[in-house]
Design a protein around this nucleic acid. Sequence first.
DNA 1: CGATTTTAGTTATAAACTATAACAGTTATT
DNA 2: AATAACTGTTATAGTTTATAACTAAAATCG
Lengths: 162, 162
Amino acid sequence: MSRPAAKGRAVAEAGVARVSDATLCGFIGYHMKRAFNVVQADLNQALKPLDLRMVTYSALVLIVDNPGLRQSQLAEALDIERANLVVIIDELEGRELITRDRVPTDRRAYALHATLAGRRLYDRALEAVRDHERRILNGMDEESKQAVIRAMSVIRRGSEGG
Amino acid sequence: MSRPAAKGRAVAEAGVARVSDATLCGFIGYHMKRAFNVVQADLNQALKPLDLRMVTYSALVLIVDNPGLRQSQLAEALDIERANLVVIIDELEGRELITRDRVPTDRRAYALHATLAGRRLYDRALEAVRDHERRILNGMDEESKQAVIRAMSVIRRGSEGG
DNA sequence: CGATTTTAGTTATAAACTATAACAGTTATT
DNA sequence: AATAACTGTTATAGTTTATAACTAAAATCG
């Protein structure tokens, strides 16, 4: 009788009543991380039926869109180490979604090309990712989307020049 | 003489002239990932002198701001597994930045508190992170920042309800 | 030309991060 | 009192990311 015990909480004190992240909320980066976690989780969920992860999906898209791409170009575009790209390419090639074609004029390099199966999966994946974005953006208006893209570009640009 | 060879490019064809990420650029998630990579790299760089990483920094901030916090509360707030939080707390405790205090009313739990050294590091870290944000946002106007925060909140909210 | 340096792809390996299951001790439920 | 649920922990395996070293081929330069 003497203690209402908020929302059915039991006797033992349960630390703080509510965790405040007010300080962290003062930083854009915090909001970006939290939101990106959601995006990544949902995206991987959306790609799972196609047996793709974020990185294999991105790689496939760039290979389809840039026929003849070299592995080192792809690694740079994806911002991952050449060494780590190898296993990704191995996987896509093993599933016969892409081919590694020796380049006659530079026998060190491989030119990457998507197979028909690769292009078909590309189409399906694109569809799945469009659905995913519609879902996570939840009816966000076009203006807001553009504002985000502009802001993200500012951040990205900053890391290049001086 | 017959071949200008764009921008001093040597004889062997170097795959595609320029990698197009136009398809991926159609997705907000892509822009977020690219930008977040930059943020994360710069943040970790900024925190390195203080021997903090993104996650240890976030944990320290939440502990300072929420005295008496339980590990399970912190794990949930940081969106990481209880099991994985243990080593993080171990590290902060080992450096005497925080203490694990047994709770008399619930002898399973530990209440987390920052030490004086922890609060001092908190202050320095906050300063460093503010500098970092100023750097990466590169003079972005307040309105754009708020637009980003609103958009990130929309994404984050979407993952909670139905 | 021939020696040296650079590049492309690869392998091996370590480090860091994440997820899962199982456990002891304690508290809550019925 | 018996059972279930919760807190922190350990162990472990899977993933991702970073680094160094290697082969083969091409570019550079005396």
